[in-house]
Computed example of a mutant assay.
Amino acid sequence: MGAEAEEQPHGAAVVADGFGLKGPRGWAFRKVSFRAEPGTLVAIEGPSGSGRTCLLLALTGRMKAKEGLAEVGGLPLPRKMAAVRRISALGQVPGVNELDPAFTVAEHLHERALLQHRFDGSVQALLRRPGTRAAEARARIAEAVAAAGLDLDALPKGGRTSVRDLERLEALRLSIALALIGRPRLLAVDDTDLKLSDAARTEVWTLLRSLTASGTTVLAVCSEAPEGALRITTEAPEAPETPEAPEAPAKVSTEKAADAPKGTGPEDTAGATGTDTGTDTGAGTTASTTEEGAADALAETGRS
């Protein structure tokens, strides 16, 4: 019974105090402070270019912060980045672990299950008979697909549907299912509401809330936080007056989305440097990613 309990999803508390990350072009984010209990939905809200994705990657141990402190599941960052990566998982993050458009849905799921078994399995698990291991992999896949709300039978060719033929919402569900195969304590999802209709956005937030209800802590980058989420608001840094001058630090708030006013002021969009894709891990901050963290993130795709 003890072994089964250890495998159950259980959220990781996330605490940040003056957390900041600086790259060659200035601060991606700075002075981020908040506390999230296990099983909390944390919405990282802000315009493209405001350091949202960098904050997501830093809190999951994929980028190394330069100032302040943070803890995930009691593990301090940046000192325990590798340990934090082991208890967290990423949904699709453009430029880090994108889905392969040539792969089918079933191929992605099977590959992730094999990687999970190879890198996270105990010695005892590795010695089990191939038939037993295959059954366990199928069970993990079925569990993750169900939790992500991905209906394989509703896809054009079922599990044989290529990623390039998926709608945006289906691709997002697939990326979440892949992350859930590892039964993480912390799930991080980038560009949560990008290019989605209002109805589809509602579906996604309902899905993420269901995951927090089961115990998993969720970090989600979005343009507008949903009601009831713990809201972390980042703002794009102002452009420096001279090439040598550092960029102004990003402003951060940690109010609940239900109580916070919607919309942002003129200063929110001044100096935004992100692209139209909504991803803000530009060259100025990707240089801060450690080699170990980058290798780990690429390993999640199995094609590093």
Rank of each mutant, 00 (worst) to 15 (best):
D259P: 06
G2T: 07
L208G: 11
R85I: 05
R185I: 09
T40D: 15
D100K: 05
S304A: 14
G2H: 07
Q92C: 06
K64E: 14
T216D: 12
G49K: 02
T206C: 01
A83H: 06
I176M: 06
A239S: 10
P76H: 00
A28Q: 06
A250Q: 05
A250M: 08
P94D: 09
E111M: 14
E235A: 13
V105R: 02
E244R: 06
A70Y: 12
L174N: 11
A28M: 03
P243K: 01
E292T: 04
D153H: 10
R129L: 14
P101I: 09
R183S: 15
R129E: 14
A248E: 08
C54Q: 04
E255N: 07
I44E: 05
A148H: 04
V189F: 10
D276L: 12
T216L: 12
T285M: 08
T279M: 07
E4A: 04
G73D: 05
A154D: 11
T285F: 14
E7Q: 06
L127G: 02
L115K: 07
F103R: 04
A135W: 07
K66G: 15
F119I: 00
L77E: 01
A179C: 10
S48M: 06
E136W: 12
T281C: 14
A177F: 13
T285Q: 12
A147S: 14
T301V: 01
T132D: 13
G18N: 10
E71D: 05
F119L: 14
T285S: 08
E67T: 12
D165P: 00
R133I: 15
D151T: 07
L178W: 06
A139K: 13
A260T: 08
L155F: 11
A225C: 06
I141V: 14
G215R: 00
A43R: 02
L150D: 06
E136N: 05
V93T: 03
E238A: 15
S33M: 02
T216I: 12
E71I: 03
P237Y: 03
A287I: 10
V252A: 13
F29T: 04
K157V: 00
R173E: 01
A139M: 10
L99G: 14
E71H: 12
A260H: 11
S253L: 12
G265V: 01
G91H: 07
E300R: 09
I181P: 00
A287T: 09
R160C: 10
R231N: 08
E4M: 02
I181H: 00
V145T: 09
A171P: 03
D193K: 01
A58S: 09
G39F: 05
G159T: 05
G149Y: 13
G149N: 05
H10P: 03
T161R: 10
A245G: 06
P226N: 06
A106H: 04
I141C: 04
R118W: 13
P266L: 12
